[in-house]
């Protein structure tokens, strides 16, 4: 039949969807960590530290993915200096442009927070980095936690806005909900990543575990709710998301494995207040995998 819609960008799932996922986990973890720091919840300092330890290494992967998907990777710097070196450029109508800057700022902030943790743990050996840390420590750590937290949310959410701000039927049809969906998904995966890392290091206190779960559960329920609303809004445009391989990934992977199963496991374990480390690891893995499936399904279905 005749194409009534725009063309697909042919973004590769292993670059773009994966970036959406990794960026989301990093940002989600970071804003949880930084919020705790900003709110001064000293009891959850370990959560913050775990979050920072996760956020920075993950975000380091993302430029590689993004640049690899470019047709002209060697020109990636045009994103910042488009009219030649020296002329800084941003296009405020382009989520991609603004998001790139947000990613840059966020990376910086997560780097500084990461340094903090390393220094706190006495693990920073390189003198050059020490110098950097000293320089930035003149500012209260909370300043860049605040900035990082803001841009963390940005990085988590802009990718959804980016998809909504297109003419592809699925992405446009689900407008304005993908941004919100990615925010809550980033929050749940961020929490899950923190829980997973802490549980693996057997550093997950029962209280912390409970708090993480208390955070995760409403977020996951909200995620389900947003998905329902999104599908309702999209109507027939949602068909590609519910059929074929994307349908399997979305319904089976994202909704069932990523949301319903973790929620079920957590509710079942409720009797004993919180899951044990092993259970946390499995549940978190489900959440993380589900979120990856969600991104892949949305990105691929939108291009079919």
């Amino acid at each position: 039949m005749m194409a009534l819609e725009s063309q697909a960008p042919h973004w590769e799932w292993y670059y773009i969807a994966l970036y959406f996922f990794i960026g989301g986990v990093s940002a989600g973890a970071y804003f949880i960590g930084s919020l705790i720091e900003l709110l001064g919840y000293e009891k959850h300092r370990e959560v913050s530290k775990a979050a920072y330890r996760i956020a920075f290494p993950l975000i380091c992967i993302t430029p590689v993915l993004l640049i690899a998907d470019l047709g002209r990777p060697e020109r990636f710097w045009h994103l910042f200096f488009s009219n030649g070196p020296g002329s800084i450029y941003t296009n405020h109508t382009s989520p991609l442009s603004v998001g790139t800057w947000a990613l840059l700022v966020y990376s910086g902030m997560s780097f500084l927070s990461f340094l903090n943790v390393q220094v706190e743990d006495g693990r920073l050996a390189l003198p050059a980095l020490k110098k950097v840390h000293e320089m930035f420590s003149r500012l209260p750590h909370k300043v860049y936690a605040a900035i990082g937290s803001f841009f963390g949310f940005f990085v988590a959410g802009y990718t959804g806005v980016l998809l909504n701000t297109t003419a592809r039927p699925l992405w446009a049809g689900t407008d304005p909900w993908i941004g919100a969906l990615f925010i809550v998904s980033a929050a749940s995966t961020g929490a899950a990543a923190i829980a997973l890392v802490m549980a693996r290091r057997q550093a997950l206190a029962p209280d912390t575990a409970r708090s993480l779960q208390t955070f995760e559960q409403p977020v996951m329920i909200a995620e389900l709710a947003i998905i329902v609303v999104m599908l309702a809004v999209a109507g027939r445009y949602a068909v590609p998301l519910l059929t074929g391989l994307s349908g399997v990934l979305f319904l089976g992977g994202a909704v069932l494995l990523g949301l319903l199963v973790p929620l079920g496991r957590q509710f079942m374990a409720r009797a004993g207040t919180a899951e044990r480390d092993g259970g946390v690891i499995i549940t978190s893995a489900f959440i993380l995998a589900g979120s990856a499936f969600l991104r892949i399904a949305l990105v691929q279905a939108g291009q079919s």
Binding site: A3, E5, S6, Q7, A8, P9, H10, W11, D69, L70, G71, R72, R75, F76, H78, L79, S82, S94, L96, L162, T165, T166, A167, R168, W171, G302, Q303
Partner: peptide, 15 residues
């Protein structure tokens, strides 16, 4: 100047 990010592609309502 184009870097090949391909974001303009789905942004065009006319394909």
């Amino acid at each position: 100047v184009c870097i090949g990010c391909k974001y303009c592609i789905p942004a065009c309502p006319y394909g």
